[in-house]
Design a protein around this nucleic acid. Structure first.
Length: 212
DNA sequence: GGCCAGGTGTAAA
DNA sequence: TTTACACATGGC
């Protein structure tokens, strides 16, 4: 099912995807805001997430303690622009509360959490968990998303599940990279893939004629 | 007006 | 274990 004739790295290089570098692509990486953004961005455009984040900022709500104790109705109102707001408000509050209960504070969470713990939280699936691990905790995890799948699909690679796709990408990249700084490299590559696909898509599919 | 967006949970087959 | 549907808003 997996044609391994190209590594992901070679593919990215060959198509010049590595050039327009989004350095530290996720805004305010390493902070609690990444968790908020990771939940809010589910099935929603990032521009809408920014509106919600700004609403939260204006109400001094971008912190672990603030989200954990905020009034749920207020939270729903503030994040409404990002859609799915009832679910997301509940997920955010529960996640913040669970972090405080299990890790005490954000720094400790960043240091100690793992994928299984994140996946056991409501509203946190594989992509959200990996985004948090990569961009908040700076772990050497490569986030794969609809854009990544779409790009590879345009070149004839398809994968059954998120985990299959991620495993192939990570192995492929590890083969070309030194372990040193792998976390930063993964963070950069995911960002570059997303920006590249955005720039080269017509509607849903990557327009391969724009690439080749 | 229909499809899509930096997905995930839940319920039915 | 898969598949279908709900969640919700706004852009094009």
């Amino acid at each position: 099912m997996i044609d391994d004739s190209y590594t992901l790295y070679q593919l990215l290089q060959q198509q010049d995807i590595l050039r327009g570098k989004p350095l530290l692509w996720w805004p305010n990486d390493g902070t609690f805001e990444v968790l908020v953004g990771a939940i809010l961005t589910q099935n929603t455009r990032w521009e809408k997430v920014e509106v919600s984040l700004q609403n939260l900022r204006e109400n001094n709500l971008i912190s672990l303690q603030a989200i954990a104790s905020v009034d749920l109705d207020l939270l729903m109102t503030l994040i409404q622009p990002s859609g799915l707001y009832k679910s997301k408000a509940s997920y955010l509050k529960k996640l913040a509360t669970a972090i405080i209960e299990d890790y005490g504070d954000f720094d400790n969470f960043v240091f100690e959490t793992d994928r299984d713990w994140l996946l056991s939280q409501k509203g946190v699936g594989p992509e959200t968990a990996d985004s948090i691990l990569c961009y908040a905790c700076k772990r050497d995890v490569m986030v794969v998303d609809a854009y990544t799948a779409r790009l590879l699909e345009a070149f004839g690679y398809s994968f059954e599940t998120y985990d299959d796709l991620q495993e192939w990408c990570e192995l492929s990249m590890r083969r070309e990279m030194d372990d040193e700084d792998l976390a930063r490299v993964f963070a950069e590559f995911h960002g570059m893939i997303v920006e590249f696909v955005k720039a080269n898509s017509k509607g849903k599919a990557v327009d391969i004629s724009l690439i080749l």
